[in-house]
Every structure is written in C-alpha cells, then in structure tokens.
Design a binder for these strands. Structure first.
Length: 423
RNA sequence: GGAGAGAUGCCUGAGUGGCCGAAAGGAACGGUUUGCUAAACCGUCGUACGGGUUAAACUGUACCGAGGGUUCGAAUCCCUCUCUCUCCGCCA
C-alpha cells in the first residue's frame, strides 16, 4: 500500500509509474487525494468539537465540586447539543476513512525506475545466464517418466488420497527432496540468514499484511472452521513475524530463511503447465526474507540475487535471470528478478525463484517500522526470494542429469543424499 | 472440551469515575563525575492522525487486549468477543 503523503507530493511520478505497471484505473489517484482532503477536513471538525466537549466536561467537574449545580447543569446541556453534532460527523469520518482505504489497497506498488516497460512475459529482460544445456542421450524422457522409471514420485497415488497437484514422493525421490531442503537451508545459514520454522497457516491479519488479502483470496486454501489460511509461501509468516513492530536501526538488516510447504489453489491452470511437477497445489520451498533500511534495499536486492545465483550455479543447472517488465510483475513488487532453469527434456524454462524488493508496500500494510537516530519511526523495506522452489529444481535435475546408467546427483547434494546416482 | 484467574507503556508493576498518556522501579539512550570498569547523580525515554511552522517550538484528538454501552466525564462501571495463564480431561 502506498502512502498518501507520498502520492500527494509525487503525483506525476505515481501516474507515470502506475502506467508502466500496466495499471488502468489511473483515476483512483485523484480520488485518493480528494478523499484524503475530505478526511482531513472532517478530522479537524470532529477534533474541535470533541475538544469543546472535553473542556466543558472538566469544568463541570469543578463546578460540581464547588457546589454550583445550576451552572453545571447548563454546561451539561451544552455538551448534549455538541454531542448531537458529533455523532453524524463521526460516522461520516469513519465512512470516508474506509472509502480512502478501499481505494488505496487497489493500487499496486510502484515499479522502480529500473523496471523495463512491457506487458507480457516475452518483454522481460534477460540480464544474465549461466550453466550449460546438456546433450541428452537418445532415450531421454521428461521427469514424469523418470519418476516412474526409478520409482521416485507417484502422481496417481496423490490423486487418490488428495487430488491432482499433490504428488507423493517416495524412495530416492523423497530423499533427494529432503537433501535439497537441507542443503538449501545450510547454504542460506552460511550466508548469514537465521533459520525459522514458522506456522504453515496464518490468520487474516497476516495474509493482509503481506498483500494476499483481499486481492488474492482465491489463491489461498482457507480453513473456514478456524478462519486460517494455508500459506502460499513462507514469505507470509516470516514477514509477519515483525508485523506491528518498531525495530531499532541497529536491528537491521533482519535476514531470515525458512523451509515450508506452500499451498496454492492455482485455479484455472491447465495443460502442459501442470504436467508432472511443473505446477502443484502443494510444493516445498526454502524462502529468504530480509527486512532492511530503506537506503539499502536495492543493494540488498542485488545481494540476494547474487546469493540465489550462486546456489543455482552450485547445482550446475542451466539458468537465466530475468528482470521482469512492468506488466509481468507482482502486485506488491517494485523490482523483481526471476530465475529460470532449463528443463532439457521438456525444452522449456521453468521459474524456480523470484526475488523482489517490495520497498514499503508490505511494511505499510503490516506496520513494520524502525527508529533511526532522530527517534522518528519510519517504514522499513522488505524483500523476499526463493532459494529455491523444489519441484522444478527436482524436475530439472532428473531431466538434465539423466544418462544411460541412471541419474547423476549434483556434487553439492551427494553428501546430503547419501550417494552420487539414482539407478 | 470443563473450571478458575488475568490482559496497563520496551519489561516488572501501581492505578476502581475527573488532578491519568498514565505512579514507581528496571532496561535503553544522552550527559556530569571518574586513572579504567563499576557506582552515583542529572536529563531523555509511546504511537497514529490533524492544526501550526521554511523547519522547529507549540497545540488538538484518539489509543491502558478488541468492539459496543452507561455517564457531563471511563484505564477505572456494564455487555460481547479474542487471547494468555493455572488446574482437570483428551492427545502427537
């Protein structure tokens, strides 16, 4: 959520950047300013009337103590008439504040100046690539066939006990996944991140704080009985650990990492996108979250991107890093780098990480602030990134590393996995 | 799930109708003192939204778990909800 004073002082910039994000309802910006003016005016009126009531009430107390009953009664009726005015004024103020808030939450975050223009994923800009696309042997197959051949993942079994999009990992498949979680977490911890195991369900306030509610309500699984949402990413609980907190500037940066399953309804997805491990309703992910000083967030974004890149490189997978164009970015993001790895048997790129600076967008909703030397509380910047989402990494390892004699395990995973090959 | 107790500022904790945005102590921060550390002493020590100002100063309103109510006036009285703690039951 953007801050109204910022919008007021930078109206032209706001309009320009919203257009870059392909946002259509630009009239909302003016509406916000009008509503905010109205809010200020009503606030002033309300406060002034309330101030009169408060001072009259104090006088009544003194008059009563002095035994001046008649004078006290006169003041009481004065207060009564003021209160009649107050009631509708208060209702109008509350309605105006709500209307303002309802409009504010419709505005996406502003893209940073560095965001390339564009509307579709094709207009994302590749900024780096690395690794080598392997030449596969003649009988190479996609990961879902490998999963069956080596008895690693059972999709049908998942269908039976839950539904499509909930695979059952077994044998070496389960172990490889567990090895990756362990390796990813260790990699992050060794780079200064603190490990957390957060809850896998959150309340509505948390879902609002990171921006899942109200817009993306349909994307989350909801447990109605207890009014809890299954997390779509660990970003939600991790960021919300600091909701309504005022940190000291010496507490920054906060660097968190955590492994959680992630639950996404993915309504409307179909076809090759959902084949095998490509898109699931439940998947595992190791996440990074940083809470930082506003002056540092873009340096930190580069640092996190380099960190994820090193992790991907260590797995020896062909990858590319894209800077997302305005139209393809998430609602809350100011600048996003996507990581994709190449799935050789499917001959397509699969997104395995998305690293974003959301600036104050979540901090404003979740009220995450810090105090610097001046003693004034101001909003932090938050960042998040995957390091990494597991199923597509698993898919690429299986496909890219398949050989006649089995599937070769990347060197960095071998000690966690317990061997160098699946055969 | 049943019974009881409770929810106050960074923490402990006082406050049962006006003098309370809130005592006191601790922590933290700034300073004085000091050979160093410690101690002592002095000061600062909530947030949000308004008004005001070049910026301050200054000033108004709201907030003592949340939401309602009573009253001229509520941290304080009443109602509802949420959460926490203790005991019992069940249980990984």
């Amino acid at each position: 959520m953007l801050q109204v004073p910022f919008i007021r002082q930078n109206k032209a910039l706001v309009l320009e950047r919203l257009a870059l994000k392909n946002f259509k309802e630009l009239d909302l910006v003016e509406e916000i300013l009008v509503l905010d003016d109205k809010r200020k005016k009503l606030t002033l009126e309300y406060d002034e009337t309330q101030a009169k009531i408060n001072s009259a009430s104090k006088e009544i107390g003194k008059l009563m103590a002095q035994g001046q009953k008649e004078e006290a009664e006169a003041r009481k009726s004065e207060v009564a008439s003021l209160k009649e005015k107050l009631q509708p004024a208060n209702e109008e103020l509350i309605a105006t504040e709500k209307a303002l808030h309802d409009v504010l939450i419709k505005l996406p975050n502003l893209p940073a100046a560095a965001v390339p223009p564009g509307k579709t994923p094709e207009e994302n800009v590749e900024i780096r690539k690395g690794g080598q696309v392997p030449v596969l042997h003649a009988g190479a197959v996609p990961h879902w066939d490998l999963a069956k051949k080596y008895d690693l993942i059972d999709f049908e079994l998942g269908n039976k006990i839950t539904g499509s999009g909930f695979p059952v990992y077994k044998n070496k498949g389960a172990r490889l996944q567990r090895a990756m979680i362990q390796y990813f977490l260790d990699f992050n911890i060794n780079n200064g991140y603190t490990e957390y195991q957060p809850p896998h369900m959150v309340n509505a306030a948390s879902a609002y704080g990171t921006g899942q509610l109200p817009d993306k309500e349909g994307q989350m699984y909801f447990v109605g009985e207890d009014e809890l949402y299954l997390i779509p990413t660990a970003e939600v609980p991790l960021t919300n650990l600091f909701r309504d907190e005022i940190l000291k500037d010496t507490d920054l940066p906060v660097k968190m990492t955590g492994y959680t399953p992630c639950f996404r309804r993915e309504a409307g997805s179909y076809g090759k996108d959902v084949r095998g491990l490509n898109r699931l309703h439940q998947f595992d992910k190791v996440e990074l979250v940083q809470i930082v000083h506003p002056d540092k967030s873009y340096d930190v974004l580069e640092e996190m991107t380099a960190h994820v890149e090193a992790l991907v490189q260590s797995l020896q997978l062909p990858y590319r890093i894209l800077k997302l164009c305005g139209g393809d970015m998430g609602f809350g993001s100011a600048l996003t780098y996507d990581f994709e790895v190449y799935s050789t048997a499917q001959q397509r790129w699969l997104e395995v990480s998305s690293v974003s600076n959301v600036e104050t967008f979540q901090a404003n909703r979740a009220k995450i602030r810090f105090k610097d030397g001046t003693g004034k509380a101001q909003l932090v910047h938050t960042l998040n990134g995957s390091s990494l989402a597991l199923p597509r990494i698993l898919a690429c390892i299986l496909e890219n590393n398949q050989a006649e004699d089995g599937i070769h395990i990347p060197a960095v995973l071998q000690s966690y996995f317990g061997s160098g090959k699946i055969s």
